[in-house]
Simulated assay, not measured.
Amino acid sequence: MKTIRKEVQTEPFRSRAFSLYTAGSEIAVFDIETTGLYPKRDSLILSGILRLRPDGSATATQYFSDRSGDEPEVIRATVRDLAECDLVVTYNGRSFDLPFLRTRAARYGIDTGALNMADLDLYMVLHYHSDLKAAIGSLAQKNVERFMGLDAARKDEISGYDSVRLYQRYMTNHDPKLEAKILLHNHDDILQLGKLLPVIEKTDFHRAMFSLGFGAGDFTVRELRAGDGGLDLRADKRRNAVDYILFPTPEQPYSLMMSRESGSLEVSFPAVKAAPGIPVIDARRILGEETMKTLEKYPAFESGYLILKKADRISYLEINAFVSAFLRQIGPRLSR
């Protein structure tokens, strides 16, 4: 296996919406190259990980299977690096890159249990939570790059299909020119994907995070449900989980159950009706006065209550902010 590591300079993306979900997070932009689309028969030949830092600097690391039998080593190195991050950014990674990695790891008995970080799949955000496809047609990464004015920064001229064919030739002659083309394609993919983060401003990002989940301290939110009866939360604790059960009391008006074995957390916050069709949660009682001061700037917090919805319009931003504050606050109690 070859390891290629380069320091690169990127323009840091600063956004209040993005920071709500990523403040203090270790972010990795991730992409893989494979010999095909089917992980049960095809191999992972190259992974690229771009580690982003707040000052705009970044490190691009590639793990390349340049010899037969290198795949397990590539997978171990990739899993190790991703497990160090709080958030992984991909483009269609939920459907392809991450499942492919896990399936190939399982083939070699490599544990991927540490890959419980939050994952931001920009393709899913654009596809389900924006009107961009209607405006530009294809949501292929390179087409979105053109829309965002980033295509001039891309140096490679090959496709993923081309990369597979080049790799097949490379494994017969180890031509350094072929290697350079394969590595450049993957390198440009992760570098360009890092630059694509501002596209979230073209989306309903808070609704996307409500639907897709996000990181909050040591937790990764997996599912949120908001309705007339209240708010239900399911999350995974990334490390040091405990067995814990909490029943509602006047002081803590919610139920909570956590499993040490699975790291899974389930919380239910019951709502009361402030008016017909307007369920609310007593956020001040749950979070305390000091935490509420940081949330009252958002419109759906009124008099210490979180308005879950009005006329079927869900308060995505405020619910996400409440859940993030709650998980960060309760985290130390749920650690061994």
Rank of each mutant, 00 (worst) to 15 (best):
P39T: 04
P39Q: 03
K40R: 13
K40H: 10
K40Y: 10
R41D: 06
R41M: 06
R41K: 14
D42P: 02
D42Y: 04
D42S: 05
S43C: 11
S43N: 12
L44C: 10
L44R: 04
I45P: 01
I45L: 10
I45N: 01
S47H: 03
S47Q: 08
G48A: 13
G48C: 10
G48M: 06
G48V: 02
L50N: 07
R51F: 04
R51V: 00
R51A: 08
L52W: 05
L52N: 01
L52E: 06
R53M: 15
R53I: 08
R53C: 13
P54V: 09
P54Q: 14
D55E: 15
D55V: 14
G56R: 13
S57F: 05
S57H: 13
S57R: 15
S57V: 08
S57Q: 14
A58E: 05
T59F: 06
T59M: 10
T59D: 11
T61G: 03
T61Y: 00
Q62K: 10
Q62L: 12
Y63M: 06
Y63L: 10
F64Y: 12
F64N: 08
F64C: 05
F64P: 01
F64Q: 07
S65M: 10
S65Y: 05
S65Q: 02
D66P: 01
D66Q: 14
D66G: 11
R67L: 11
R67P: 01
S68M: 14
S68Y: 14
G69E: 15
G69H: 14
G69P: 09
G69F: 14
G69D: 15
D70Q: 11
D70N: 12
D70E: 09
E71F: 01
P72R: 13
P72I: 11
P72S: 15
P72Q: 15
E73D: 13
V74Y: 01
V74Q: 04
I75N: 00
I75M: 03
I75Y: 01
R76N: 07
R76H: 00
A77G: 08
T78P: 06
V79M: 12
R80G: 05
R80T: 06
R80W: 06
D81I: 07
L82M: 09
L82A: 02
L82Y: 01
L82V: 02
L82P: 00
A83Q: 14
A83M: 13
E84K: 15
E84S: 11
D86V: 09
D86M: 09
D86Q: 13
D86K: 08
L87V: 15
L87K: 02
V89M: 08
V89L: 13
V89G: 00
V89W: 00
V89H: 01
T90S: 11
Y91K: 06
Y91I: 05
Y91T: 02
N92W: 10
N92V: 02
N92A: 10
R94P: 03
S95A: 15
S95H: 12
F96Y: 14
F96N: 11
D97G: 08
D97M: 07
D97V: 07
D97L: 07
D97Y: 08
L98G: 00
L98I: 15
L98M: 15
P99V: 11
P99K: 12
F100T: 02
F100I: 09
